[in-house]
């Protein structure tokens, strides 16, 4: 049982770390604000939440795992609000999103 829990939490934490690093890489790599926001969406609730779920499996049934669950709920409820506010503010200030042509997709440096 303990070994199984260890394996599951290893897998979850490694997957979360992978998604987090990939999202950070995407924030560096993508060409404009709106596409970077998509890369941030991989980190912002998802990657960190996976790591936290891994910690829940590690902690077992205790007050700690309850706190971690509340933390995941907070992240899941608040991060889309911040993301939406950011995109809306940028759009209202006239920051044009980079859009793809019908014919040729834009290439990334």
């Amino acid at each position: 049982m303990s070994l199984l829990a260890d394996i599951i939490s290893w897998a979850l934490i490694l997957a979360g770390s992978f998604f987090t690093l990939a999202g950070a890489f995407g924030i560096i790599r993508f060409p404009d604000l709106y596409t970077r926001m998509h890369a941030s969406g991989v980190i912002d609730p998802f990657g960190v939440s996976l790591i936290l779920v891994g910690l829940i499996v590690q902690a077992g049934l205790s007050l700690i795992s309850v706190k971690l669950t509340i933390l995941i709920l907070f992240l899941g409820l608040t991060s889309p609000v911040a993301c939406h506010a950011l995109g809306r503010a940028a759009r209202h200030r006239g920051l044009k999103p980079l859009l793809a042509d019908r014919e040729k997709p834009p290439s990334i440096s």
């Binding site: 998604f19 709106y34 596409t35 998509h38």
Partner: peptide, 19 residues
């Protein structure tokens, strides 16, 4: 998330941003 990660890590990402 897996789809976006594949796009980020591919050497020539074919992103087509759309509104």
């Amino acid at each position: 998330a897996w789809d976006v990660t594949k796009l980020i890590l591919s050497p020539q990402p074919q992103i087509t941003p759309t509104l």
